[in-house]
Amino acid sequence: MNPAIQISGLSKHYGELQALQSVDLSIAPGELFGLIGPDGAGKTSLIRILATLLLPTEGTASVLGKDVVKHYRFIRRNMGYMPGRFSLYYDLSVEENISLFATIFGTTLQENYELVREIYSQIEPFKDRKAGALSGGMKQKLALSCALIHRPKVLFLDEPTTGVDAVSRREFWGMLQNLKAHGITILVSTPYMDEAGLCDRIALIQKGNILAVDSPGGIVSQFERPLYAVRAADKYHLLKSLRSYPYAHSAFSFGDSIHYTDQRGAFAPESLLTYLEGQGVKDAQIEPIQAGVEDCFMALMQRHETSH
């Protein structure tokens, strides 16, 4: 099957700044693909190039088999796009916003109601309210409804969950799962590593480079070193002690524990506990754990930085 999105050797420079450096990526039809990385990693540039809103400096990209530069009209008719910032009209009501976008795309809400029903029905009780007076989560649902109103084949979502609370974020990802069932290819970017697990495949991106592309499971299985969670009551002291341990490879806070990797191939956790006790951390506990996407991201980030 032909890929829905094909990117090869794509670079984007803004003067001196290299926002994207020779990116290659292929996304299959119907995939829910996550672009994961912090602010300034190049996520927005990549999505805007695919959404035909920016020209690449080098390389090519195609969406639905059409070149993003030459066939931008075709792509604009067949894609849904939700920019990073809430970009609807604050002074128009929910219903007016929806019908405006429907007419722009030459369709009506009724025609595609079945696709947006699940999302729009949640905000329909407030259809007379001005978009500017909606809460963050509801704005997001309205923006998604507007992006879907013309039944796009591919959907670009630039950081839809940034600044949104954890509850609304969960709901949003639930909606994306349902859209996937309609066969829409979805490319979504996010700075939240914990959302990676909800995608079919993810690309980790940092400073314009793709660090890794794989399924979330594939990514975490690439984590090279055994990973341990270390806990103690005085976390600050524990962290300082771990960092000063001569054999420490990395020590990062993770929730209520500290994730630790050791430089040595054969590492006995007991030796670390003995060391910690000497440092005054008497209540330390250590257990091996499975790495998460965030662990991988940090490891890849560090490796990338030392190799450059």
């Binding site: 604009r76 796009y81 920019p83």
Partner: peptide, 10 residues
Amino acid sequence: GTMEVLLASP
């Protein structure tokens, strides 16, 4: 940012 959405439309 609404211009961005308009540009992204047909």
